[in-house]
């Protein structure tokens, strides 16, 4: 079971761009994680491995352009590499959707970024769908309904 505790997107300056908590932590602990994990990850050199042990869990991260994708996973689960794959899939899917995704896309279309993430991961980080096409297909369908709705609004 890939137990993702949280998924976090942080800019190089340490600003949170997207965050999804999959486990109920209390506020204080959340802030602590945000602060410490972010600093820890940002301070690591590029020639180090993408895994970090932090308190009671592992942190798997990967840098894409100016964004760090960070996932907190269970200590016992033995799939850091798999988590990296999930992150990669997420990035690829956004890339396909936005067309060469950049940080600005995620800022301006945060709701879409959340949708894509939600179509891929639910419930403590279990995967719903790994196929890019499938995810895009669903999000596309959502877009279609949305523009229909908007059209209705304009016409009425």
């Amino acid at each position: 079971m890939s137990q993702i505790k949280y998924m976090l997107l942080t800019s190089r300056q340490g600003k949170t761009r997207l965050i999804r908590w999959y486990q109920p932590f209390d506020i204080k602990y959340k802030h602590k994680i945000l602060r410490e994990v972010t600093t820890n990850v940002l301070s690591r050199k590029s020639k180090m491995c993408n895994i970090l042990e932090y308190q009671d869990h592992k942190v798997v991260y990967k840098k894409y352009a100016s964004l760090y994708f960070i996932a907190g996973i269970d200590l016992d689960s033995d799939n850091e590499l798999l988590t990296l794959e999930i992150i990669h899939r997420f990035v690829e899917t956004m890339d396909r959707y936005f067309g060469n995704v950049c940080e600005l896309d995620i800022i301006f279309n945060f709701s879409k970024a959340y949708s894509i993430l939600d179509e891929m991961i639910m419930c403590d980080g279990s995967i719903i769908e790994t196929s890019k096409d499938e995810v895009i297909h669903v999000v596309e369908a959502m877009d279609a309904i949305e523009s229909n709705d908007d059209l209705d609004r304009v016409l009425s």
Binding site: R96, Y97, F98, G99, N100, D105, I107, F108, V139, D143
Partner: peptide, 22 residues
């Protein structure tokens, strides 16, 4: 064109607000 790009202007007020903050 990528799918997401035609979605950009959906809520103008929101986009402006975000741009403003940035």
């Amino acid at each position: 064109m990528a799918l997401g790009q035609n979605q950009q202007n959906n809520m103008k007020g929101l986009q402006l607000f975000i741009a403003d903050l940035r």
